[in-house]
Design a protein around this nucleic acid. Structure first.
Length: 431
RNA sequence: GGGGAGAUACUCAAGCGGCCAACGAGGACAGACUGUAAAUCUGUUGUUUUUUAACUUCGCAGGUUCGAAUCCUGCUCUCCCCA
């Protein structure tokens, strides 16, 4: 499914115009000028799904592959057992082995969707547990640990920041484990560069240093800037929590909505990072967007592309339909025309309650429907207040306080969409 | 251990015997406006079939009083000062 590599464009150049280059070791550009490169990025199995934040690194690999290079995605079966101290102010709790393996498997499946496993520069997914499981402690500290000084390791920010508050030996040794990964991939798979977020710079350079000291190897490191919103807040988080790639955690609809709500100030940057569109195309979309920002062409375009890539084009279609019904000028007619499956999908996650059919057929007073029948609103007083505010809609049309719901209001003979204001939905299932 | 201050609705914070369902601010929700944005303006924010009405609420339990969030007693908790 991922697009084939296009004409051999230079990866570093590609990252530069996408604003995705934060730092790289000297000699990195020469490395790419010599032909296809094999490189890797590691993923930490802290959860059983990748979050949208991880998409930055997924996209780094995607751009890497599209410029003709061979990507390796590493899932951290071994490193996950230890815990990366980077950016953490306190010791991490270790995950149980079962949990870890579960997370690993789930992340691996997700990663498989994004890379191309065919052709000359086919992607690979590896698990560092595979080469650590055989290795004994003595072997490791003798063959690997001997090459780096504690002084060197202590100079890393991830360690330095913890000297005051304390840090276990386990976390201290994390960089060595990750460094050895790089060595192993370099030695056995010809991997010449490790990439990652800028917070990984320290860990990555431990690897390049290790390779230099162990076998005088010369490899590169490259990091991408941490993506954040123009207002300085963290990307990928909402009041509702993290945005996940797993549809069970974050529905495709919510995923789509999250992207659609991107601020104008961020959209240009996001398009560069998250889409595979070329420079000219992005610039022309931006120009068009600036002509009529309220149309949010850029947001729609990016949300569509990413939703389709992460989920599927069917999921995208549903998300777009759902958005149209919820936010567009969808009329009562459009809503009434929806089939049952779409309704359930659109209103998945919307609070629901069952209402007896006989009550509705007899004509159900609106206040009663809002409170006793459904529990949508807390009290009769609140319901009356809301009605007075003209904020209650049934099936997208406003209703007066003296309204009575009847079977005419049923969608597909069994649903009534209640709404308070624009954003609060409630689905009454009548049966 | 001694002394002092306090506990009020989602949060902060007035009230110190009747006019208190309780000022005000923030938040939240809604309406107008709008781009499913921001800002702004307006309204609502204890329950009860709209009410000049009733009921439940001001840490907990009692008491004084025609009447208490407001006074008294005990309890619980929080904070501050001196040891």
């Amino acid at each position: 499914m991922p697009p084939k590599a296009n004409a051999m464009k230079n990866f570093v150049e590609e990252l530069k115009w996408r604003n995705m280059l934060h730092d790289m070791t000297p000699g990195t550009e020469e490395l790419f000028s010599q032909g296809p490169v094999s490189g890797y990025i590691g993923f930490d199995p802290t959860a059983d799904s990748l979050g949208i934040g991880n998409m930055v690194q997924v996209m780094t690999l995607t751009h890497f592959q599209r410029t003709g290079n061979k990507p390796i995605a590493l899932v951290g079966g071994a490193t996950g057992m230890v815990g990366d101290p980077s950016g953490k102010s306190a010791e991490r709790n270790l995950l149980g082995v079962d949990q870890l393996n579960h997370n690993l498997e789930c992340q691996k499946k997700q990663l498989e969707k994004f890379l191309d496993f065919e052709g000359a520069n086919a992607a690979q997914i590896v698990n560092n547990y595979d080469w650590f499981k055989e290795m004994g402690f003595l072997e490791f500290i003798r063959d690997v640990g001997k090459h780096l000084s504690v002084n060197y390791m202590m100079a890393k920010d991830s360690v330095k920041n913890r000297l005051e508050t304390g840090m276990s030996f386990t976390e201290f040794s994390y960089q060595l484990i990750q460094g050895y990964d790089f060595y192993y991939l370099w030695k056995h798979m010809g991997c010449n560069i490790q990439m990652g977020g800028s917070d990984q710079w320290g860990n990555i350079t431990t690897g390049t240093e290790l390779i230099r000291r162990m076998e005088s190897g010369n490899v590169s490191a490259l990091t991408t800037p941490l993506i954040k919103k123009a207002d300085g807040t963290k990307f990928g988080k909402t009041e509702g929590g993290n945005i996940w790639l797993d549809p069970m955690r974050t529905s495709p609809y919510k995923f789509y909505q999250f992207l659609l709500n991107t601020a104008d100030a961020d959209i240009g940057n996001y398009m560069r990072v998250f889409s595979t569109l070329g420079r000219e195309e992005i610039e022309s979309i931006e120009a068009e967007h600036n002509e009529a920002p309220h149309m949010r062409l850029a947001q729609k375009r990016m949300a569509a592309e990413l939703t389709a890539r992460v989920h599927s084009s069917q999921d995208l279609k549903k998300a777009e339909d759902a958005s149209e019904v919820l936010f567009g000028r969808a009329t009562k007619e459009a809503l009434m025309a929806l089939d049952e499956a779409t309704i359930l999908d659109v209103f998945e996650g919307v609070p629901q309650a069952k209402v007896s059919k006989s009550a509705v057929e007899a004509g159900c007073d609106i206040v009663n429907l809002l409170t006793e029948q459904t529990g949508f609103l807390a009290s009769n007083g609140e319901a009356r207040r809301a009605l007075k505010e003209n904020s209650i809609s049934i099936n997208k049309s406003k209703v007066a306080p003296d309204y009575s719901a009847t079977s005419n209001d049923l969608i597909d003979g069994k649903y009534i969409l209640l709404q308070r204001g624009k954003k609060n939905y409630f689905l009454a299932i009548v049966e």
